[in-house]
Design a protein around this nucleic acid. Structure first.
Lengths: 200, 200
DNA sequence: AATATCATGTAACATGTTACATGATTGG
DNA sequence: CCAATCATGTAACATGTTACATGATATT
């Protein structure tokens, strides 16, 4: 039936900001919610079709100039508020980076360092993007939605800064690990405590 | 074919630490990797079956005392290193909390505050759990895997602290928003610009 | 005219969860 | 003995991505 409540929520939510084509919906979600949400065409169009059948969205400007946009209806707004109200089910986490680091002993210290450095670089980029996004927000773009959008942008910034700080700490750990390995001769790297570790 | 490389990675990785039953595998993943990974029985058992067929894991102690455990083979270790080596594909983000806050205007300020407070509380709990997990790590439990596990624990701690800091900021924003609404009479809180959002 | 982008959709596949069935072992 | 937990598995379903097909509109 309901091809995912989650997708419906995102679609109705986006349309609550302004009417859009399905295509623009995907673009908007990617560019604006990209840091914490994603939808593919394969979900958006079926979702729109279903919502239209349920009279929660309707097409506007049918064969007018360009193509028709989808607009949220009253029933749709009600449904959206309903969907937003039920508790956010925390999605099962699947962090491929952490999985690799967790089994870092198999992967090797150097590869781990690369991964951490890449993550750090991504976080830096994200941070500058978000900071400029916040600047834009001071402008106009989203009207009354702005304060709420700001809150999500702030979350992204905090997250990015946390990633950067973590990365630096992780790099230290990895270096310490390597040094310990060198000192310890051929013996495998011991944990991070200097302590008294005579080899063999 | 391969019922998810990701699941295979997690299963082989866990077995690289020590041999386990499928049941223990699931428990171990939930308790140890829980903060950034999850697998269900419906994935683990088929994955184990397939890995056994490919001779990457084997059963140990068949009808001995308790039940048989699965152990990683040489081929399995090689495969694991292979899997860990290819780049972590960043999973498409789906943060239900942020989605709700983003559309917070529809949800209402009070409900948003509740959500933020809940998130903050979860982060607090997580932080204390991770801190004690780190203390345990100073002990022995995971041997040579410890330093790598530590890195992932640190990531969790940084993340949790970031969530807490963000939550406090977000709560301030929400309060400010409410005050602005009160001052502004019955009119809904204005962002900054009147804007022209005529539809219909 | 040719190319790029906008736009809508679908089918095949990949992935993942839930609920159920089944039985062994263990502790009270 | 009975209940709880350990243990293995499967089938039905839910969800989600990718690749493709199709055509309109806009740009050069």
């Amino acid at each position: 039936m309901a091809r995912s409540d989650q997708t419906q929520t995102a679609v109705l939510g986006a349309l609550s900001i302004r009417p859009m084509t399905g295509y623009a919906l995907r673009e908007g979600i990617r560019s604006t919610l990209g840091n914490f949400w994603s939808e593919s065409f394969g979900q958006i169009y079926p979702a729109l079709a279903e919502l239209e059948r349920a009279a929660m969205v309707e097409r506007r400007g049918a064969k007018d100039t360009r193509s028709s946009t989808f607009a949220i209806t009253q029933a749709g707004s009600a449904r959206l508020r309903e969907l937003l109200s039920d508790p956010p089910q925390p999605s099962k986490p699947r962090n491929a980076l952490m999985l690799r680091l967790f089994f870092g002993r198999q992967l090797g210290v150097d590869a781990c360092r690369d991964l951490v450095l890449q993550a750090r670089a991504r976080a830096e980029v994200q941070l500058t993007e978000l900071t400029s996004a916040r600047a834009e927000l001071e402008g106009q773009s989203l009207g009354e939605d702005s304060p709420f959008v700001l809150i999500t942008v702030l979350a992204g910034e905090h997250g990015a800064r946390a990633t950067i700080a973590w990365a630096d700490e992780a790099l230290n750990e990895l270096s310490a690990l390597e040094e310990a390995a060198l000192e310890g001769d051929g013996t495998p790297p011991r944990a991070h405590i200097p302590s008294t570790m005579e080899q063999s």
